[in-house]
Design a protein around this nucleic acid. Structure first.
Lengths: 146, 146
DNA sequence: AACTATTACTCACTAATCGAAAGTAGGCAC
DNA sequence: GTGCCTACTTTCGATTAGTGAGTAATAGTT
C-alpha cells in the first residue's frame, strides 16, 4: 500500500493512488471542497508546522526543549504557539506529567501521522530538487544584474 | 549555555514497523541533506506558494489579475512577491509581452509541476481530513472552557 | 533555611511582515 | 490633455514573528 511514496523520482504519470491518477485528483472537481481545502492548507502549511511534524514523525515522542533543539532556530514562543495550534487541529497529543519540574511529552496523533505521510512526498521532492533550486536561484540572481 | 548541548544523545531506535512503512522513506538518512531540505521547505512551504502552485497547476497559464482572482484573498503585493520568489526558485516562468497595456503570463516550469505533484498528496489529505480537523478544533475549544 | 537549577511555559516589548489603497508607467481612444 | 488599462511599486497602519525576562514548584546543594 505504501509503494507509491517510495524513494524514487516523483513522476506525475507514474504515481497512482486510490486508483485514479494523482494529478487528476488534484484538479478541483468541487469548488466548495477546493475552497475548504484552501483554508486547511492555509492553516497547516507554514514552515514550523511542517518541520515540527517531520521531527515528531522521526522521533515519535519528544519533550518541549528536546523538540526545540531538534527543530532548531525556533523561539520558545513560536514552538509553544505552533504546538498549541497543532494540538487544536488534532495533529499532536500533549501528555502532561504532573511532576516537578514539569514534564510534557508531545507526539503525533493518528491524524498527524497521516499528514506526515502526505508531506512525505514534499520532503522527498525537496531533497531531490535542492540543487535545481539552488541553480535556478543563482541563474536568476545573475541574470538580474545584467 | 552552549555546554548544555554536549550531552544530547537522545535517539530512540528507528523501528521498522509494518504499519508505518510509508514513513520510512521520510526518515532522513543524511543529516546534511535533512538540514538543506529543511531550508528548502522553509522557503516553499507557505500558504500562498502552495495555493498559487495549485492554481497554476490547474489553469496552466494565467495573467496576473486572473491569478489573483482565482487565488482569492491575496493582496497584489503578496502576489507579486510570491511570484517573484517562485520565479527565482525556478518554479514558475514569467512571460512578459512588451505591449501596452502590459501583459504578463505565468505558468509552471517543469520543476514547478513536479512540486505540484508532490503537494498533491497534501491536498488530498486536506480534502479528506477537513471534517476531522474541524471536529478536533471544536473539541479543543470546548474543552478549554471547562 | 537559603540558594540554585530545571522545565514548560507566559508576558512585555521590538523587529519584521502583511494588506489595502494610492501611485507609476506608457501607449491609446477620446 | 484626460482618462483608461495592466502589472506592478510604494506608503502606512496593523498584524504577526521573535527576544529576553519572569513564573511556579521542588529536588539537590550549601
Amino acid at each position: 500500500m505504501a509503494a507509491a511514496v517510495m524513494k524514487m523520482n516523483i513522476e506525475p504519470e507514474l504515481e497512482t493512488r486510490n486508483g485514479a491518477a494523482v494529478l487528476e485528483a488534484c484538479q478541483t472537481t468541487d469548488p466548495d471542497v477546493a475552497a475548504l481545502a484552501n483554508e486547511v492548507i492555509g492553516r497547516i502549511a507554514d514552515k514550523w508546522t511542517m518541520i515540527i511534524l517531520e521531527t515528531l514523525n522521526e522521533h515519535k515522542t519528544l519533550r518541549f526543549t528536546q523538540l526545540g533543539h531538534l527543530v532548531g532556530g525556533i523561539s520558545q514562543k513560536m514552538l509553544t504557539q505552533t504546538l498549541r495550534q497543532m494540538e487544536r487541529d488534532g495533529l499532536v497529543t500533549r501528555l502532561v506529567y504532573p511532576v516537578v519540574p514539569p514534564k510534557v511529552e508531545y507526539s503525533l496523533t493518528e491524524l498527524g501521522v497521516t499528514l506526515g505521510a502526505a508531506f512525505c512526498g514534499v520532503w522527498l521532492w525537496a531533497e531531490e530538487n535542492l540543487a535545481k533550486i539552488e541553480a535556478a536561484r543563482l541563474k536568476f540572481d545573475g541574470r538580474a544584474k545584467l
